[in-house]
């Protein structure tokens, strides 16, 4: 009973704040709404018996990735940049195609994905995930760590425009630890 209440409240929160992200003109408000939306998704993960991933969702998405977004928006002072109006035809096509996609996929979910309730309780704790990561998935795991390393190097190279003049600018000094943190937390 409680479960259903929690599901509906947080599903509503997730959808409303996701709409704010897409519709609001101020990028800072958008980023903060996305944080709220991600947080309510973490609640969904708890309802799906995956508390470990719920904690990771908050740490990685809300705590690292969205902070990075917020930093970039604030440092570039983007709230003063007026976004150009979208062409009407683009707007029309965007809304209709998204709606069409939604209607189609909900139709097929209702038609074909009517499962019976899972029988045995599903418990995915950190121990099982760890064992699985280092046995069955050890190769993808190593690949992801190399990818993260590449991302760190790439982000530093791209955002540091004064890399060859040996003169650093204060905003870019701020960027560096943050770019790494997004990657490190996940590892």
């Amino acid at each position: 009973m409680f479960e259903y209440l929690i599901f509906f409240v947080f599903a509503a929160i997730a959808i409303i704040f996701a709409l704010v992200v897409v519709l609001h003109r101020n990028a800072v408000v958008g980023a903060l709404s996305l944080v709220v939306s991600f947080f309510s998704l973490a609640v969904m993960y708890v309802l799906l018996d995956a508390p470990f991933l719920a904690a990771l969702q908050v740490i990685v998405y809300a705590g690292a990735i969205m902070v990075l977004f917020l930093f970039v928006i604030m440092l570039l002072n983007l709230q003063h940049v007026q976004e150009a109006n979208t062409r009407p035809v683009q707007k029309f096509l965007g809304y209709t195609s998204a709606a069409a996609f939604l209607i189609t996929i909900v139709y097929y979910i209702l038609k074909y994905a009517a499962f019976t309730a899972p029988a045995s309780p599903f418990r995915a704790d950190a121990h099982q995930i760890g064992v699985s990561l280092f046995e069955a998935y050890v190769f993808p795991f190593e690949m992801v760590s190399i990818l993260l390393l590449a991302a760190i190097v790439g982000a530093m190279l791209l955002s540091n425009r004064s890399i060859d003049t040996s003169e650093s600018i204060s905003t870019e000094v701020m960027e560096q630890p943050d770019g790494e943190s997004g990657a490190e937390v996940t590892r």
Binding site: G154, A155, R187
Partner: peptide, 22 residues
Amino acid sequence: LIFVFFIMAIAAAEAAVGLAIF
């Protein structure tokens, strides 16, 4: 679950590089 774990790691990498591009 493992797949979601990897997606999170890749999303972090993607955010770092993407924002650097912006």
